[in-house]
């Protein structure tokens, strides 16, 4: 019974940052902007939340600062890809690299080794928000002007322009949303851990992107992909070192489980994926 509770809790703890980041990626990619920089945005948010919260003692200000940093990086991506027509993959890699270096530097320079404890964030509120978010987004794209224009611009920016929509404006708003959600995801990660460690997002931005692609760029299947990943990740943590069916598998094999299981579970369930037709189009 205790194991089951642990499993559920672990699924939520591991799954929710992924949901936030993946839905963040949803806005960017649905508007047609390829975004491999979810990782960098999350990372810059974690260090900012950590340092500002400790400096001010106010978690609200810390989270706000983290989100701002993430938005700033997101805007940088918009500027490079939309205004200066840089390849979005190159821009994304640059942002990841800058975020990685900046986070490392800020950590080394400003973290006080003797600092007092990190104030807890209202985790429950984060969890509820993250789990509801895909449903809200689903309603948003179906029932609002902004949602319709988001899909239209991501599908065919030229035709959308002919209909009086401004693709760059739509993408600007979409990338702000991406920044906000990646910022929240970063805040949640640092809060879950209770302290900052070097490179603490550990590739979860890429996992979120994979979940988004696996979910066919649709919010609800993406939610399923994130939860499945969280579930199997927690499962392998709990199964590590135990014997299953009389076999004790090496740790490395267990570490593969979440990736393989998520892929298999979803590949069959989700059917045909459809990439947004205008993805990467200027």
């Amino acid at each position: 019974m205790n194991d089951l509770r642990l499993l559920l809790e672990g699924t939520v703890i591991l799954g929710t940052p992924l949901i936030l980041a993946a839905i963040g990626g949803y806005f960017s990619e649905r508007s047609g902007v390829i975004n491999i920089a979810l990782e960098g945005k999350m990372l810059i948010a974690t260090i900012t939340v950590w340092l500002v919260t400790i400096a001010t003692g106010q978690p609200v200000i810390g989270v706000a600062a983290g989100i701002s940093a993430s938005i700033l990086f997101s805007m940088f991506h918009w500027l490079l890809t939309q205004r200066y027509s840089l390849d979005p993959i190159v821009s994304g890699m640059a942002i990841n690299a800058i975020a990685f270096g900046a986070a490392n530097f800020l950590d080394k320079r400003f973290t006080d080794p003797d600092q007092a404890g990190f104030p807890k964030l209202p985790l429950m509120a984060f969890w509820v928000f993250a789990l509801m978010l895909p449903f809200l987004v689903w309603l948003y794209v179906r029932h609002t002007r902004g949602g319709l224009r988001l899909l239209a611009v991501g599908s065919d920016p030229d035709k959308a322009r002919q209909m009086g929509v401004f693709p760059q404006r739509t993408r600007f708003m979409a990338l702000i949303a991406t920044g906000v959600l990646c910022g929240l995801a970063g805040a949640l990660i640092v809060s879950n851990a209770g302290s900052y460690v070097d490179n603490m997002t550990a590739g979860r931005g890429f996992i979120a992107l994979a979940a988004l692609i696996l979910g066919g760029w649709r919010p609800l299947p993406t939610l399923a992909a994130c939860i499945a990943f969280g579930f199997f990740y927690q499962l392998q943590i709990q199964l590590q070192g135990t014997q299953v069916l009389g076999i004790s598998a090496p740790r490395e094999l267990w570490l593969c489980l979440p990736y393989i299981a998520t892929l298999v579970a979803l590949a069959g369930l989700l059917g045909r994926n459809r990439t947004p037709a205008g993805l990467g189009k200027p």
Binding site: H143, R145, L148, R149, A152, A160, Q162, P276, A277
Partner: peptide, 28 residues
């Protein structure tokens, strides 16, 4: 225009409204 400005991934109704939606929210 000669090459229609209809976006194939969207529904007919969405295509009809795009750029001239009735308001912030859409009552389908």
């Amino acid at each position: 225009s000669q090459h229609y400005s209809i976006i194939p991934d969207l529904t007919c109704l969405d295509n009809l409204m795009l750029g001239a939606e009735p308001g912030w929210t859409i009552d389908k």
